[in-house]
């Protein structure tokens, strides 16, 4: 995917939700997309799968999936891809599952929209995928309704629906937020296992750095609608190049470590600031930061970052120029 640009036009002015976002996902890779509220990660994801609603519009860029630009595809073709080649796991399983339809029907609806199979075959496929997700007695679960399930179970069912057609890319939007910690671990372990088995790629959108650190291969950090850093998780987390990444890592409460505060708040996406969107909160900012927007540049073969500091924070000579305001 390259240079994706999504803009939303609302009554108050143009909200630049996604500004020139570019990144790539390779086969079999688990990529974490990290950002806080207002970072644009949800908007980016929706732009990829074509679910941007009025008053928003994608105004620029392209999204290449395998060989096609998703943004220029006709609606019919996009729908075929969505669901069977690219699937989506939403945040709240109970919002994604139909409350009144039995679960086997819900699987059917998805499968038969893309493949011509009988109901019996749908049931078998569904059963198989649920079994892989460690759901006890899948046949009984399929005959029941969504509200009979616990949070963890329901999320597994939703994951099952997302995986049943063997997609190449799975996009998960905070799939474990709201679940208990122990259940979260179980589900994440499962997801990783299933992906590895089938060489699927996944884009995991989350704000939980722990999840990214422990499960993802690569990470993309977004702030105020742009990508500020990306690269292999180990490298980025051990030595962040962008000041925002560093601040985010510092903000995670950890034992035996004093809390580091990041002052200020995210800039308005309507009155988009000049220069680097992070410069007013950055401890390392200098004059150029307020004037010129930094572009995503290469740090090395596998890492990119968007900062005016040459080599970002990795350069030894970098010191905080101002006290964190």
């Amino acid at each position: 995917m390259r240079e994706l640009e999504t803009q939303f036009v609302t009554r108050r002015g143009t909200v630049r939700a996604v500004n020139g976002v570019s990144f790539q996902i390779a086969t079999g890779e688990l990529v974490g997309l990290v950002g806080e509220t207002g970072s644009g990660k949800s908007a980016t994801v929706r732009s990829i799968i074509g679910l941007v609603r009025k008053p928003g519009r994608v105004v620029g860029g392209e999204v290449r999936f395998l060989d096609e630009d998703l943004l220029t595809l006709p609606a019919g073709r996009l729908r075929k891809i969505r669901g069977s080649r690219i699937s989506f796991i939403p945040q709240n399983p109970f919002a994604a599952l139909h409350p009144v339809l039995k679960l086997d029907r819900q699987f059917e609806n998805v499968i038969r929209a893309h493949k011509d199979v009988s109901r019996g075959e749908c049931f078998d496929l569904a059963q198989q995928v649920l079994q892989r997700l460690a759901i006890p007695d899948p046949a009984r679960v399929l005959g029941g309704y969504a509200h009979e399930l616990s949070g963890g179970m329901a999320q597994r069912v939703v994951i099952g629906i997302a995986l049943v057609l063997d997609p190449d890319l799975v996009i998960a939007d905070e799939p474990t937020t709201g679940l208990d910690v122990t259940v979260q671990r179980q589900i994440l372990d499962l997801i990783v296992e299933l992906l590895a088995d089938d060489r699927r790629a996944m884009l995991l959108v989350t704000h939980d750095l722990g999840v990214v650190a422990q499960y993802c291969h690569r990470v993309i950090v977004m702030y105020a609608g742009t990508v500020v850093e990306s690269g292999p998780v180990d490298a980025v987390f051990r030595q962040p190049a962008h000041p925002y990444t560093r601040a985010l890592l510092d903000a995670v409460p950890q034992p035996n470590k004093p809390l580091q505060i990041l002052r200020g708040s995210i800039p308005s996406l309507i009155d988009y600031p000049r220069g680097c969107p992070f410069h007013d909160r950055c401890a390392f900012a200098f004059a150029r930061c307020g004037e010129e927007t930094p572009h995503l540049g290469r740090l090395n073969n596998s890492r990119e970052y968007a900062c005016h500091l040459p080599q970002g924070l990795i350069a030894e000579s970098v010191e905080a120029r101002t006290e964190a305001r």
């Binding site: 910690v181 122990t182 939980d208 750095l209 722990g210 650190a213 422990q214 180990d234 987390f237 051990r238």
Partner: peptide, 11 residues
């Protein structure tokens, strides 16, 4: 079950 944000720390 808590996941550390430090990739070096394995749970």
């Amino acid at each position: 079950a808590a996941l550390s944000a430090d990739p070096d720390v394995k749970p």
